[in-house]
Simulated assay, not measured.
Amino acid sequence: MTTKAAPIGIFDSGYGGLTVFKEIVKQLPGYDYIYLGDNARVPYGTRSFETVYRYTLECVEQLFGMGCRLVILACNTASAKALRSIQQNDLPRSKELRRVLGVIRPTAEIVGSYTRSGKVGILATPGTVSSGSYVIEIEKFFPTIEVFQEACPMWVPLVENNEFNSPGADYFIQKNLNNLLGKCPGIDTVVLACTHYPLLISKIRQFLPPHIQIVSQGKLVAQSLQDYLNRHAEIEALCSDGGTIRYFTTESCGNFNDKAAIFLEYPVESEHIEI
């Protein structure tokens, strides 16, 4: 009988984190998971640092209250605007061993192995771009890499309204990619710095020159989490291993179930939660 009692918590402001969650479960299928989507208060990308921090902390505390000891912010905006404050200010106050991890660092750590030109493009929400988090984190690991950013405010609505294969998607994707490459024709690697964007990858590939590599986060974050658990036995020992998954949403369960199926490619049954 296992003595572990803590599922791994996965948080996202909306649905995009499901692309990361899908890869985590594929990489680490034996653990118990709780996925929490704050869908009623989406989007986070256009909100202030203070609001994103407050919303994210409320959801992280909710997951802690449900027994989680390790929480993954599967959201670039939350990782950019709230993770550092939670790690430095809030976790030290806890009497229990708790950890919160994000999606930006695992991506920044590996991007140098993709680029040959040393010029990397970032496609992200306006909030992630304005935070400068990718520029800061990549510089820590690869100070010689030049980073060029492009905010794509229409991409998330296209995905969440199931319009990512429409002619309208073509217009916005091509426009943003042209803007990005116009900032530096030497870009040879593009990071999809929003968890919604993997659903647009075929369209993105269509409008990018074939020599440019596309870096998607899901597998990188899953591999990073496995490495983290291997290196931190004290945290891994707290993670329960029953192979169960529960989905919670702050919105209506019907809406969540319908949209989650687009991201996961299989049906889910969610539970409503008030935060």
Score class of each variant (00 low, 15 high):
R231G: 03
L177V: 09
G102H: 04
G102D: 05
F164G: 00
P267R: 10
W155L: 15
Q174I: 00
N255C: 06
L180A: 03
G182N: 13
E236T: 09
I72E: 02
F21T: 01
I187N: 02
T115D: 01
T189Y: 04
A237Y: 05
F164K: 01
T249F: 01
K95L: 13
F256G: 06
V120D: 01
G121V: 03
Q87R: 14
Y44T: 07
I8S: 00
L91C: 07
V221H: 03
N178G: 02
E271D: 09
I86R: 06
Q223H: 12
D241T: 13
K259V: 15
T144G: 00
E163K: 10
S270A: 15
A108M: 08
G118C: 02
V190G: 02
R205I: 01
N76G: 00
A237E: 15
H196C: 10
L177Q: 05
D90Q: 12
S270Q: 03
E23M: 11
A80I: 10
E160K: 07
I273R: 13
S216R: 00
L180Q: 06
S216Q: 13
Q206L: 13
A237S: 15
N176M: 04
I110L: 14
F263T: 03
L229R: 09
P267V: 10
A74Y: 10
R41Y: 13
I138L: 08
V120I: 12
G67N: 09
M66S: 11
L199N: 02
V135M: 05
V190I: 14
A74I: 08
P157E: 09
L57D: 05
G243S: 11
S133M: 13
T244S: 14
S224Y: 11
A260V: 04
V103W: 05
I212R: 02
R105N: 08
L225G: 01
G14F: 06
A78Q: 08
D258C: 08
I86V: 09
S94N: 07
A78V: 11
I187V: 13
S48R: 07
N257F: 03
A237H: 12
T107F: 04
Y134T: 03
C253D: 09
A124V: 12
F172L: 04
T19C: 03
V215L: 10
N178K: 14
N178Y: 06
D227E: 14
T46A: 13
E251I: 04
A222M: 08
Q223I: 06
